[in-house]
Design a protein around this nucleic acid. Structure first.
Lengths: 142, 142
DNA sequence: TTGGTTTTGATAGTCATTTTCAATAAAACA
DNA sequence: TGTTTTATTGAAAATGACTATCAAAACCAA
């Protein structure tokens, strides 16, 4: 799992002509050791406590690279700090979100995906990805 | 429609003990005359061209009030600017979002809605609302 | 109109993020 | 291996969106 992610970054670096550096290796290790989503500042503090000579700017730069490489994703909440979450291979972006207990059920529906493609075509739009969130009350909470 | 929105704000102002001011009236008029979503800066420019003596800080403050009153909603894209969109009763939340120029096209598809209902039923889920965002490149940017 | 309170505009301040740039380190080359 | 080339780094300055400050102006009840 972690090796696969490291390979994704190695391949990305290769394809972009990026160099392999100690800083990037360390930041990637630490990012991969986290769960859920983490703010740049939080990650920087972790990095700093493990390797004090790595600068904040490098953490910012490197996280953007991870996002570009497709192994992290920027998340915007309403507190002005950018956070990053892991991109999980094969994950679906279709969720039933319970607004009471915050539980999330992931689903998949081919017909919906097909209709999305149709709609995009009709607008000359080229799809990269999508997110469908249905909010409401789950079976336990209603 | 517009009158209804104005009433929402008037009621909100009343309940909060806020005063009715020329600036808020003008900003509300201009906000209601826009479509889709608009950044604070964009709205400020519109306001300034109509009434040059209204300051930027007031536009920021007033838009936050609109959001609090429930007639606007903050949107975060990835360009660091906060945008506001109209809260429409019974509105649709299905969008094609261009990741390059940030343009948004709203669409509606009954079949998708129907399928969502089916999926929700299957999980014993009671839908309150939903959001479907398709990210990619619009016709102009691809 | 007056008096108390809210709102405003200008501006200074804040804070996350980005840019700059000289120093350093990685890859390419000899 | 040493040398050259070029990317990367850290520190600090710059940027840019947004917020706080505060004296002046506007609002509104009496």
């Amino acid at each position: 799992m972690i090796l696969a992610k490291k390979k994704i970054f190695t391949d990305f670096a290769l394809s972009k002509g990026l160099r392999s550096t100690r800083q990037r290796d360390i930041i990637l290790d630490i990012f991969l050791s986290t769960h859920q989503h983490i703010s740049v500042e939080e990650l920087y503090l972790k990095v700093k406590s493990s390797t004090p000579d790595i600068g904040q700017a490098t953490v910012y730069r490197t996280l953007k690279l991870f996002a570009e490489a497709g192994l992290a994703r920027e998340i915007l909440l309403h507190d002005g700090q950018t956070r990053y979450e892991h991109v999980v291979a094969g994950e679906h972006h279709d969720h039933l979100v319970c607004t009471k207990c915050n539980s999330i059920v992931e689903f998949e529906n081919e017909t919906i995906e097909m209709l999305q493609n149709e709609i995009a075509d009709r607008h000359g739009f080229q799809i990269r990805n999508h997110k469908l969130e249905i909010y409401g009350l789950c079976a336990n909470c209603r």
